[in-house]
Amino acid sequence: MTLAKRIIPCLDVDNGRVVKGVKFVDIRDAGDPVEVAKRYHREGADEITFLDITATSDNRDTMVHVVEEVASQVFIPLTVGGGIRQLEDIRTMLNAGADKVAINSAAVKTPEFVKQAADKFGSQCIVVAIDAKQVDQDWEIFTHGGRKATGIDAIEWAKKMVTYGAGEILLTSMDKDGTKSGFDLELTAKISESVPVPVIASGGVGTLDHLVEGILQGKADAVLAASIFHFAEYSIHEAKQYMANQGIDVRL
C-alpha cells in the first residue's frame, strides 16, 4: 500500500480556450477546455492543472466559468494557476470548484501573500509555482513567463515558500520547457530533497521515459506534461502503464 505517483496533464487556457493545440480524434471541439479535461479524466489523469494565460484581467471571469464547468463533470483534483494575485482570486477559484491554486509571480512580489493565503485557505490548496533557470552552477527563479530575472536562488526560495505555507511546489525548468529533452533532473532532485512537501516536476517532457526519470532520478512526487498528451502521442493510460512497468506505483 503506497501513495501513487501522479500524472498531471496541464492545459494552457487563453480567454477560455485551450491554446498550444490539442489533437484528439474523439473530441468535437479540442479547443474547449471542458472537452479536453473530460478526455483526460476518462483516461485516468490523477489531477488536471489549468494555466490561465489570459493577458487582461477583464477576461478572467471566463476562466472562472471554465473551472465551474469542468468541476461539474470531472471528479478529480483541479489546480488553477495564472493571475492569482490576491486572496479574493483564490476564494473565487476555490468557490468555482478548484481544489488548489498555483501562485507564481505574486509570491515573488509579496512573499507574505503565500503566508496569508495558507492561513486563510489551508496549505493543502496553496501550490507555489517556481520557474527556474540554470545560472552557472545554481538555479535562479524567473517571473513573467521566464522573462524577468529575480536574483533569487531557486532551492532557497522553495524552502522559504514551504515555511510560508506552500503545500506543494510546481517546479518548471525554463531551460527545458518546450525542448522535449526531459526534465532538469538535477534541479528537481535538489528541490525535492530540500523540501518536506510534494514536488511536481514540469518542463521538457517528450517521451514516456522522461516521466519515469522525473520520478526515479528527479525524485518528484508528480509529473506534469502538456504536449505529449495534447497531441495524443500517448494517452495518460499508456503513460501510467509504462511507468508501472518500470516499477513505479501509479493508480491504474
Binding site: 501522479r6 506543494e168 512537501v197 510534494p198 512526487d221
Partner: peptide
C-alpha cells in the same frame, strides 16, 4: 515522508 499526505492511496 512528504507531508501533507497528498494524492492517491489505497484503502483496505
Amino acid at each position: 515522508l512528504k507531508i501533507p499526505h497528498m494524492g492517491w492511496n489505497q484503502v483496505k
